[in-house]
């Protein structure tokens, strides 16, 4: 049997969840034995080259590009997993959700104390730029998500165990410490 294929991406996240994947240390060698990677920052494959079995999503959706990528993942992966607080709930980026987007943009580009030089009061508007969404959306509001791994980031061990469980079909053990945070 060929190895299951995994894709990963970071949307509106901080890459902390990806760092946590790498935190499995030497088990990374086992990981490569266990699965094959396709589109992912880990191997720098930029576009899907084949259908995948598992997609790991870090981060929620704050702009139009995130939406496209997420939909692309849904199309190309049999199973999608929201990894971490940002993917599940919007996380830190969602702190802006209570503030109208215009106010956010004004603060960032026009009136904020860190704005050094913007005499024409321009808010970036190039067509190449992704369009900002009115709020940060958790992934499951955009596409169907099959599993959720909580944490900020989820511990390396949890991500590892979840991957192994998905690949082997064994039940995932979720000890209390893994999902209880305060």
């Amino acid at each position: 049997m060929s190895k299951p294929i995994v894709a990963t991406t970071s949307l509106a996240g901080c890459f902390g969840c990806h760092m946590s994947i790498l935190d499995i240390d030497e088990k990374i060698l086992d990981l490569i034995e266990l699965v094959e990677f396709n589109k992912s920052p880990i191997d720098d494959i930029k576009t899907f080259t084949k259908k995948c079995d598992i997609g790991l999503i870090e981060g929620g959706c704050c702009n139009s590009e995130n939406i496209h990528v997420l939909k692309d993942f849904r199309k190309n992966c049999k199973i999608l997993v929201s990894v971490g607080e940002c993917a599940i709930m919007g996380g830190l980026p969602a702190l802006r959700n209570g503030i109208p987007i215009k106010e956010c943009l004004d603060e960032a580009y026009i009136n904020g104390p860190s704005v050094q030089h913007n005499p024409k009061g321009i808010i970036p508007n190039d067509d190449e730029l992704p369009m900002l969404l009115d709020r940060v959306y958790p992934c499951h509001e955009i596409v169907k998500i099959d599993y959720y791994l909580p944490g900020c980031p989820p511990r390396a061990e949890l991500i590892w165990n979840a991957l192994v469980a998905l690949v082997t079909g064994d039940e995932l053990k979720l000890p209390y410490e893994v999902v209880k945070f305060d």
Binding site: S64, P100, I101, K102, L105, D106, I123, P124, N125, M131, L132, L133, D134, R135, Y137
Partner: peptide, 9 residues
């Protein structure tokens, strides 16, 4: 979802 930000920009 993108209406307000596009208007602002």
């Amino acid at each position: 979802a993108v209406k307000a930000s596009c208007e602002a920009a």
